[in-house]
């Protein structure tokens, strides 16, 4: 226990400062995100992530938002287990045909008003997988989409920027 406390003490808070290239961008985006979430969502934006058929690369970067470098909870963003608690769906694709009904049902379980963001090259337009007997491609082919975050996969910073833009235009 003492060693754990010692480690916590020595490492300190790593969330800030960030390496030069990202620092201004992350701080700026983070602060704007926090302000907008304060204004529009009472300080707390609940996101339900749905993997609708991805290669899992996008999931790794969405998970990274919770690591201490990004600490997205600091800005008021929470990933929730149930769509019934969600203000926003982050959907990665391509939407496999085997997941399309599950995706539709997840949307139906998400209360309005809600936002849907398609994540990644695959979520945006099918990416490397496109449309086929097994894939519906873009998320927008299955459910209405409000915003798109491109990249293969989008970096955590891209994701934060995309979430911010999506709530801004809301």
């Amino acid at each position: 226990m003492l060693r754990i406390l010692g480690k916590i003490q020595r490492v300190g808070i790593v969330t800030e400062p960030l390496p030069a290239a990202d620092e201004p961008a992350l701080t700026e985006i983070g602060e704007q995100l926090k302000a907008k979430i304060g204004e529009l969502f009472g300080g707390s934006l609940a996101i339900r992530e749905v993997d609708a058929g991805s290669c899992n690369g996008c999931e790794l970067e969405i998970q990274a938002l919770n690591n201490p470098w990004y600490g997205i909870e600091h800005y008021g963003v929470h990933f929730v287990a149930s769509p019934r608690h969600a203000d926003m769906l982050l959907v990665t694709g391509p939407v496999s045909r085997h997941m399309e009904e599950a995706l539709r049902r997840t949307l139906a379980a998400t209360p309005e008003p809600r936002l849907v963001i398609a994540v990644g090259a695959c979520g945006a337009d099918g990416g490397e997988f496109g449309e086929s007997y097994a894939s519906r491609g873009a998320v927008a082919n299955v459910i209405p989409v409000d915003a798109v975050i491109r990249g293969c996969p989008p970096t955590p910073l891209d994701l934060m920027r995309g979430i911010l833009e999506a709530i801004r235009v809301r």
Partner: peptide
Amino acid sequence: LGYTHKGIEKI
């Protein structure tokens, strides 16, 4: 399983 089957072998 099979939910993320996206036809990799075919495409």
